[in-house]
């Protein structure tokens, strides 16, 4: 880890100005990912701009019946918030499936979106990596690929996005509020993260100096018909090999609306509206869920070691949708997958 300068920002404007004016500067809030990456020498910022004092710690109801969550709300506060537990239990569950209680206490809502990949080679500062050093090559391809992407990868990068929370946010159709030197804007969640293409160094569509200020959720729906199912190499405190956020709205015994997003399989939470559309009007069944899973996984391709993820994802989608349709969501402390 290198030494760096430090600025404690008192206002949003001050923070943005401090970062926008210095290409080597970065925002820091919870620090749970950035400080780790700095110790590995992956991130080498010249200056950190501390935004933890900014007034972004509140949650408020929106006029449309939704919820706006300040970017600095800690993950644990969000997961255990009474409104979130009641209205957005899928989000709560996904957050609690991730990291550890200590990390969730420190990590923030905005920071969760900005987590960087756990690709082994991204972390190995001595290995070529297009995400870390554009143009240096991808060491993962042809290497140890068990944890890598099966969807949306490119010849430049096969990394995955590590967040659990974001998978739920994708399924719920959240909106990201952003502020930067050129003012404020909103971004639909599916447009926030990007696929690697030939510029894997860009995890998302934020410009330098832009900051996430809030996440907005639409009015609640789905009731108890949701589930977050995470499959990993030990039963807790591990990144997902595959995770699924599923939610359905039932009209009698038929599905009126379905949402499915996958984690651990792509450079961003993976959602395909056409796959969800296949479920409209269907009676919940493994067969119907399987068809949606196939559509969701269309074009999936493995690197060899991670080929299993394609079948695992298919099975996980069917199971998570079954849990959602039955109104028996996965409980994160219970390791029996119902």
């Amino acid at each position: 880890m290198i030494n760096f300068g430090y600025t404690r920002a008192a206002t949003i404007g001050e923070a943005i100005q401090a970062v926008a004016g210095d290409p080597q500067a970065r925002f820091i809030a919870g620090g749970t990912n950035l400080v780790d990456l700095m110790k590995y020498g992956v991130e080498r910022p010249g200056r950190l701009v501390d935004i933890t004092r900014l007034p972004l710690k509140h949650m408020e109801d929106t006029p449309g019946g939704g919820l706006k969550i300040g970017a600095l709300v800690p993950n644990s506060d969000l997961a255990y918030d009474a409104r979130v537990e009641r209205d957005y239990p899928l989000l709560s569950s996904a957050i609690l499936a991730g990291a550890s209680a200590q990390l969730r206490n420190a990590a923030t809502t905005g920071g969760n979106l900005l987590q960087r990949t756990r690709c082994y080679y991204f972390y190995d500062a001595a290995a070529p990596c297009n995400k870390r050093e554009p143009g240096s090559g991808c060491s993962a391809i042809g290497g140890v690929t068990r944890v890598h992407a099966i969807l949306g990868a490119s010849s430049s990068c096969i990394a995955t996005h590590p967040s659990d929370m974001c998978v739920a946010l994708a399924a719920l159709g959240a909106t990201v509020h952003v502020e930067g030197p050129d003012g404020a804007r909103t971004v639909a969640f599916e447009d926030f993260h990007r696929l690697p293409g030939d510029a894997p160094e860009k995890d998302n569509t934020l410009a330098h100096g832009e900051m996430v200020t809030a996440i907005e959720l639409p009015a609640p729906r789905f009731g108890s018909n949701h589930s977050y199912l995470k499959l990993r190499d030990r039963l807790s405190y591990a990144f997902a090999l595959v995770s699924v956020a599923a939610a359905v709205e039932l009209d009698g015994d038929r599905i009126a609306e379905a949402r499915v997003a996958l984690g651990g399989v792509a450079h961003k939470p993976w959602r395909v509206p056409e796959a969800e559309a296949l479920l409209k009007g269907e009676t919940p069944s493994p067969d119907a869920f399987g068809k949606a899973a196939d559509r969701l996984l269309e074009g999936a391709v493995g690197q060899g070691e991670n080929d299993f993820k394609i079948e695992l994802a298919r099975r996980a989608v069917i199971r998570a949708l079954s849990q959602a349709a039955a109104g028996t969501p996965q409980v994160q402390s219970n390791k029996i997958v119902n």
């Binding site: 620090g31 110790k39 990390l103």
Partner: peptide
């Protein structure tokens, strides 16, 4: 020293966190 083991856990304003990932100046 990476938030992956919990041995450094302390309470900051009553909340448990990994002290290895907290910058003291913050």
């Amino acid at each position: 020293d990476q938030g992956q083991c919990g041995a450094c856990t302390v309470l900051v304003d009553g909340r448990r966190v990994n002290s290895c990932l907290q910058l003291a100046v913050m």
